[in-house]
Design a protein around this nucleic acid. Sequence first.
DNA 1: TCCTCCCTGTTC
DNA 2: GAACAGGGAGGA
Length: 279
Amino acid sequence: MPELPEVETVVRTLRPQVENRIITGVEVRLPKTVQAGEKFLSDLVGARIAGTRRRAKLALLDLALPDGSALIAAFHLKMTGKFFVHPPEAVPLKHTRLIFDLSDQRSIPAGRLFFDDTRTFGYCRFMRPESLHLWNFWATLGPEPLETPAEELAACLHAGNRAVKAALLDQTVLAGAGNIYADESLFAAGIAPTARTRDVSPKRLTALAEALQAVLRRSIEECGSSIRDYRDAAGNAGAFQNNFAVYGRAGQPCVRCGEPLQGARVAGRTTVFCPQCQK
DNA sequence: TCCTCCCTGTTC
DNA sequence: GAACAGGGAGGA
């Protein structure tokens, strides 16, 4: 389940394999994977992949079209979306949803970029950069947690009155956290996932924001967390799952106090926390 | 603000 | 053969 550190890792591993390659063909194997901008599909041949970057949990390809205009391919991997660059002769796999054929700048075939997605929740949108703001999801995304002071993130979390975990998961509050990093940062900050944001002091919300930043940074250093499906664009698993204090550990002893961790459902998500250490 | 649904492979 | 995994849209 790619969250911010996993998408960051995917983008970093994809970059050297696709940047400055030319798209020589496109194959849409599952129509619904292209969520918007189908009309641009025919313009893609000859486009150069000018850049790769991340915003929230989106992986973005900046494309330079042959007519000189710019286009963005925005991919949301959701739970099971994966990129992989295969040799030019590779054939689609069972769950391959979208393929870009790539060549180098001298038109020599360089490979095929597969977007594979078992559960088909992932998508790609083709958009003009100047039209991005018309996409509601994009326009309402909250700040990047690693590029924003913790006090500012705390103020975002404080707005409204809901379970703190629900605020952490809300991409319009801050962008990039998912179930894993929400649970891990709540544990690190000693805050119960069900605590109402209005009842948590600004100081503790700041500690939560700092804990989130720390856990995201550490996970990026370890190339993300691999639960089941996740692989980066080089086919490698991450290692941060070995550092989980609570995620997936319901019933096991708390690493801090030894009491059994409790499982629950909060904000519609499986949640694990320590009733002793998190108040 | 909260709940349901989408989807398929894995686990019990 | 059912429960479960979960981001985000959409509806209550």
